[in-house]
């Protein structure tokens, strides 16, 4: 698992510890491994606290249940309407179990960018952010900065309030800094 993925799972797990809902939109990891990652981090996790939107296009159309976690299948990482429907259903499920706030992770925008152009991904991020805002959810999205040209990164960045930069630290491990939430970037901190 990459540093980015670790970090977003940690962010979601941190919310789940205090009872928040969690939604993971995945384009690469299977739903079962997403659930496992969560169980490792939050042993007391209730199934109804997590929803997974699996965009790998490998499952059937029917929603399934993995250890009490509902999984919504989407045909491909380029099916934006399908992803939207999956997220809506996941949020509905969480809402029905009494969770009116939470955190959503989308891993990763880089995969989506191989299926559709940056304009569409940018608009998707904007629309999704607006929806999450209304639903009381915080969104955390990952992108592999090395996989795209700088202009693409600059465009996608604009759809978000802030950015967390992660790099390999000298002497091993990783460090991160936050940009965009304050006037100046924060200092690099080991994570």
């Amino acid at each position: 698992m990459t540093g980015k993925e670790n970090l977003v799972y940690d962010v979601l797990a941190d919310g789940a510890e205090s009872g928040d809902g969690a939604v993971v939109v995945t384009t690469s990891d299977g739903a079962a491994s997403v659930v496992e990652e969560f169980r490792d981090r939050v042993p007391k996790l209730r199934g109804a606290q997590l929803g997974v939107v699996d965009c790998r296009g490998e499952g059937g159309a029917d929603p399934e249940l993995i250890e009490g976690v509902s999984v919504h299948q989407v045909s491909s990482p380029g099916d934006l309407t399908g992803i939207g429907i999956g997220i809506t259903k996941a949020l509905e499920g969480l809402h029905d179990s009494g969770r009116d706030r939470g955190r959503l992770a989308l891993v990763s925008l880089s995969t989506m960018l191989t299926y559709t152009d940056k304009k569409t991904v940018f608009k998707f991020c904007h629309v999704l952010s607006s929806r999450l805002d209304a639903a009381g959810y915080i969104g955390v999205f990952t992108i592999d900065s090395g996989a795209h040209d700088q202009q693409t990164i600059q465009v996608i960045k604009q759809a978000f309030d802030g950015l967390i930069d992660i790099r390999d630290a000298e002497g091993g491990g990783r460090e991160a800094r936050v940009l965009g939430l304050a006037n100046e970037p924060t200092d690099w901190k080991r994570i």
Binding site: L80, K123, F124
Partner: peptide, 12 residues
């Protein structure tokens, strides 16, 4: 939400 997303996919 869905109607807006569908607009993005249609012809965009």
């Amino acid at each position: 939400f869905i109607a807006t997303l569908r607009g993005l996919s249609n012809g965009e």
